[in-house]
Each structure stands twice: as C-alpha cells, then as structure tokens.
Design a protein around this nucleic acid. Structure first.
Lengths: 136, 136
DNA sequence: CATACTGTACTAGCACACACAGTACAGCAG
DNA sequence: CTGCTGTACTGTGTGTGCTAGTACAGTATG
C-alpha cells in the first residue's frame, strides 16, 4: 500500500458548498469509510487541481484543513498521506459541533413538515453507509 | 386570537447564519411547534427591526421568504399573519431537500467520529421537541 | 379629507468569503 | 542540477449579506 490513488472526486458546480469544502467533505468521507486506506498517498496539490480544473490554492486550502483535523499527514517534499486514526477533538468540542449540526438539520427539516420517523429512518441508512468498512 | 404577539426572538451575533435566516428559522420553528397559533399577527417589519436592532429590509426579506414558503399570509396594509397549514411543497421537492439536509448533516457528523447510535438518539430527542403541540 | 400605520420595491454602498492568478521558498528524489 | 512535493504570501474579481435611504400602495382612524 501507500501508493498514490486516483481519488475519484467530483466537484459539482451546482453544489452550494464552496469547492474547498466539497473536497474536504469528499476526502474525509473516503477516509472515514476506509475507501482511502491508512498510509495511502493523495494526489498532489497541483495534480488534483489540474484534474478538477480548479486553482491549486483551493486544493491546498482543503488539504491544509484536512491535515489540521488530523485526517491527513504531511511529509515535506514527499506529499500527503492518510494519517492513522486518533482522537482529533476534545469531548466538549465534539459535543458542541454535534449540537450545531443537529440544530442546523432540525431547522432544515422542520421546513419540510415530514414525519419524524421517516426522517430518522432516512438518516439512519445514510449514517450506516458511512460506517468504516474493514473489508472491501 | 389573531392579536399581535411579542415574538421573543433572539439574534445571536456569534451565529454563523445570516440574520435573515435566523429570523426565518426562528419563526418557522415557532409556527411548526404551535407556539405561534393560526391567525396570530406578527410584529411589523419596522417594529421587529427596531426591537432586534437591525435593518427593516432584513426583516422584510425574512418575512417574504416565510410568506413564499406558505407559513405566513400577507394582507396589504394590515400586516402578516400565521397562515393555515397546507401542503407547501411537492413530494419531489421535499425528497430533494431532505436528501440535501441529510447529506449535509452526515458530512458534518462524519468529521466528529462519533458512534451512529449516539447521533441518532441525540437527533431523535431534538426532533421530538419540535413536534406540534396541540395543547400548551 | 389628513395622518399614521401596514407591506413591498427599489437603488446604492460597505464588508466579507471565496476562488482565482502569480510568485516564491523549503524539502526530497532522480 | 532538474523536477517534483507542500507551503506561504500578495493581489484581484465576484457574489452574498447587511445596511441606508427613498418611494409607493393599501388600510384604519379621526
């Protein structure tokens, strides 16, 4: 392992999220699910930028955030690699962020006037799909 | 009923959401939970703006969105009132928005590396708290 | 009628975030 | 050395959100 991977990432111009956040979300999801295994090298800043047709600075910014969050590891002059899993955030910080995410989601969903059951089932499936898969 | 209500809304400057969205979310929540009953008149655009210390245009923008969504009803020269509940969005539109909200939430939560159970329980409680209360 | 409220619709300016463009530097491999 | 890696800057343009000011139509009251 530890070889560079193609990183089938797609940037949707119609997506409301900024490009850098799309990259962060996409890579983070792939690491969390195990699609990007420990030690795998990511495409270079300039390489991914060219592949996606965007500015290298935008990729660098996304990579910097992923590194700060502990998902990636930087080796100067070599590249970026998937970092070993570890506790990245304090309990308090995680609770705070969870509260914010829950609040945001509830605000979004209340506007739809849907039964709570349906929402929970729908979300449960999605969360399960993102659980780490040890075996491919 | 149908009298004006004080609308205990709070605008948090620390909140990342734009002010107008905070108003939309707040009012929508109060209508959904029944805290703002059918037919109740809302504070005037200028009145709420002064109360919150913000620009009247910002309030008008929020009210316009709530009216477009079907939560409020406008009577020219009289004011804005809580509208009777009705199907505001098509099935397809609601599914689309639910998908987006779920996706956004999952992306936020994956970053926290928390057990899915905990997240679902936490969210279930919050959704229940926002269910319509027929009786005060 | 006049006055004082309502919502609504504009224009204009300012601040901020985002993406882009270009340049530069340090570290590693051949 | 050359060529790749990440990283750090300085700008520039654009879009969004909030503010400010003005104007107009509809309704109620005197």
């Amino acid at each position: 392992m530890a070889r560079t991977q193609a990183l089938m990432l797609e940037i949707a111009t119609g997506d409301a999220r900024p490009i850098s956040k799309q990259i962060v979300d996409g890579v983070r999801m792939k690491v969390a699910t195990g699609e990007l295994a420990l030690g795998v090298q990511l495409p270079s800043v300039r390489g991914l930028a060219q592949q996606l047709g965007i500015n290298p600075n935008t990729v660098a910014k996304a990579y910097a955030e992923l590194t700060a969050e502990g998902w990636l590891e930087s080796r100067q002059g070599l590249g970026l690699f998937v970092a070993p899993p570890r506790q990245r955030l304090s309990r308090a910080e995680r609770d705070k962020r969870l509260d914010e995410a829950v609040s945001r989601f509830v605000h979004d969903v209340v506007a739809l006037d849907l039964p709570a059951d349906e929402v929970l089932v729908r979300l449960g499936l999605e969360l399960q799909a993102c659980a780490p898969k040890k075996t491919a």
